[in-house]
Amino acid sequence: MAYDKFNILTSSAVPLPIENVDTDQIIPARFLKATERKGFGDNLFRDWRYNSDNSPKQDFVLNNPIYGGKILVGGKNFGSGSSREHAAWAVYDYGFRCVVSSFFADIFRNNCLNIGVLPVQVSPEFLHKIFTAIEVDPKTQLKIDLPEQSVTILATGEKESFEINDYKKANMTNGFDDIDYLLNIKDKISEYAQDTPL
């Protein structure tokens, strides 16, 4: 499925300064029963966000109206655990287009890239600066510049670059996905398939 193009995103950010946020927290397994990709945003961080009677937990950041924006900033080792793409869908469906952390779990990072959410890995020091900037001003703006591969805290002008491979970068900026690419090299694939050892 082709997705939204990503170029430059300037937005306030939601801080979640917790390490090892796993996919079971991002979306608990009991919400994985859908057969369509719809409505996952409502259950993003379900058990941190709501009490068992479905009333919102006031101390959780998504329930705090002073925070908002299209960028989620998480602690180290974000997205560890299961391969469920539903976690990335929930992040997207809630309205985030970018997740910033100092370290991502592999599968979660791939899943994000595959659906058009940009994972931005920064140094632990820069992550700390972002958290501090948001603490000082919850509306502080971050600028994510994909063509330039940089993230800037606009209030202070502090800036850091991030890595992304050229192929994925081109996909994100054009809104293409891998399947489009693979269907184009179909002949090469069937040639390979003729002579597999297994």
Binding site: S83, E85, H86, I107, N111, N114, L183
Partner: peptide, 12 residues
């Protein structure tokens, strides 16, 4: 793998 990748493997 994630679901987009499941689709990828089914397709290609």
């Amino acid at each position: 793998i994630g679901t987009s990748e499941v689709e990828m493997v089914l397709a290609t």
